[in-house]
C-alpha cells in the first residue's frame, strides 16, 4: 500500500518553443504512514508534483502507481483516487462556498455518493479532527477568522477519508501561533490515524520539527530525499538554490567551529538546547 512514481516527467506548453520541463524524471516511493515535507522555492515543481499525485495533472511521460494499480490505466477510477489522495490547495479557504460550515464540509463526502447519515458522520468527525469548536458548525464560513476558515477547508478534504493527505503551504498567511496550531493538529492527525501526510512548504524551519523525511525539489528534480538532519547537512548547497536550513543548523555549525563539542545534526530548539547545555557544563 503506497504511492510510487516511476520516471515521471511533465512538460508545460508542449507544442510551443517555450516548453518548460516542470518535472524531470521523478522517481519516488511514498510508503504508508509517513510524514513527509516537500520543500522547494516557487517554480521548483513542488506544486506540479503534488497535482500529479491525485491525477489533476497527467504526466507527459512515466507512471504513477497507487496501492499497486497504475493510475493511468484506462479503467482506473480517477474519482476514487481523488477520494483516497486528498489535496488541500494553498489558501484553501478561498474555495468555501456553502451557507454554513457543516454543509460545506459535507460537499466532499456527498460527491462520493454516500448516504446522508454517513456524509454527516464524516463531516462531523472531520471538523472535530481539525479542532473546530462545535458552536461554529452552523455559522457562515465567511464569518470565521482566517485560521478557522482554513481549518474548515482542511476538514472539507478530510471528510473524504483520504489515505494520503497532501497540503500545499497550509500555514501561509497565518500568525506564528496559528501556524503552530495547524501544524500541531496535522501531526496529531498523522499519529492518531496513521494517515500518510505530504506537507508542501517553503520553510525548512516549519517542517523540521514535524516530518520524518524531507524531499527537496529544485528545477523539477528531486535534489535531496532523506531524513531532515541528513538533508540539512547540505546547508551550503541548499543556500545555492535559494533555500536555507533552519537557523538552528547555522547556530550549531558556528558553535562547532568555535570549538564547542556539539552535534551539528540537531534540528530543533529542544535538541540544540540539550546539546549546548551539555557541552557547556561538561
Amino acid at each position: 500500500m503506497s504511492l510510487i512514481l516511476d520516471h515521471v516527467n511533465y512538460v508545460y506548453g508542449d507544442d510551443t518553443p517555450l516548453a518548460v520541463k516542470a518535472l524531470d524524471d521523478i522517481c519516488l516511493t511514498i510508503p504508508d504512514g509517513q510524514f513527509i515535507g516537500i520543500i522547494g522555492h516557487t517554480g521548483s515543481g513542488k506544486s506540479t508534483l503534488m497535482q500529479h499525485l491525485n491525477g489533476l495533472l497527467k504526466a507527459s511521460d512515466g507512471s504513477i502507481y497507487f496501492n499497486g494499480e497504475d493510475i493511468y490505466d484506462k479503467d482506473y477510477d480517477m474519482k476514487k483516487l481523488r477520494s483516497k489522495v486528498g489535496l488541500v490547495f494553498q489558501y484553501p479557504e478561498h474555495q468555501l462556498f456553502e451557507v454554513d460550515v457543516f454543509t460545506d464540509v459535507c460537499f466532499g463526502p456527498k460527491n462520493l455518493g454516500l448516504d446522508q447519515r454517513e456524509v454527516e458522520l464524516r463531516a462531523y468527525d472531520a471538523l472535530r479532527k481539525v479542532g473546530l469548536p462545535d458552536e461554529l458548525f452552523y455559522q457562515s464560513p465567511f464569518d470565521l477568522s482566517g485560521g478557522q476558515k482554513r481549518r474548515v477547508a482542511i476538514a472539507g478534504v478530510l471528510a473524504m477519508k483520504p489515505e494520503v493527505l497532501i497540503l500545499d503551504e497550509p500555514t501561509a498567511g497565518l500568525d506564528p501561533r496559528g501556524r503552530d496550531e495547524i501544524l500541531g493538529q496535522i501531526k496529531k492527525l498523522q499519529t492518531e490515524t496513521g494517515m500518510t501526510i505530504l506537507l508542501v512548504s517553503h520553510s525548512m524551519e516549519d517542517v523540521a520539527e514535524y516530518v520524518d523525511r524531507i524531499i527537496v525539489m529544485n528545477k523539477g528534480k528531486v535534489m535531496y530525499d532523506d531524513e531532515p538532519k541528513k538533508v540539512f547537512r547540505h546547508y551550503k548547497e541548499l543556500e545555492e538554490v535559494g533555500l536555507a536550513a533552519p537557523q538552528v543548523t547555522y547556530i550549531m555549525h558556528a558553535l562547532k567551529e568555535k570549538g564547542l563539542n556539539v552535534d551539528v545534526d540537531a534540528t530543533t530548539i529542544e535538541e540544540a538546547t540539550r546539546q549546548i547545555y551539555k557541552a557547556l557544563t561538561e
Binding site: 506564528p176 537557523q247 538552528v248 530548539i269 538546547t273 549546548i276
Partner: peptide, 23 residues
C-alpha cells in the same frame, strides 16, 4: 510574546532556553 500569539527568532529562543537552565 508567546502569550500574544507571536514568536521569537530561533536564536533568541535558544538563548532564552539556555538562560532558563542557568547559563
Amino acid at each position: 510574546l508567546k502569550n500574544l500569539r507571536l514568536d521569537v527568532p530561533q536564536i533568541t529562543l535558544l538563548a532564552y532556553e539556555l538562560q532558563k537552565k542557568g547559563i
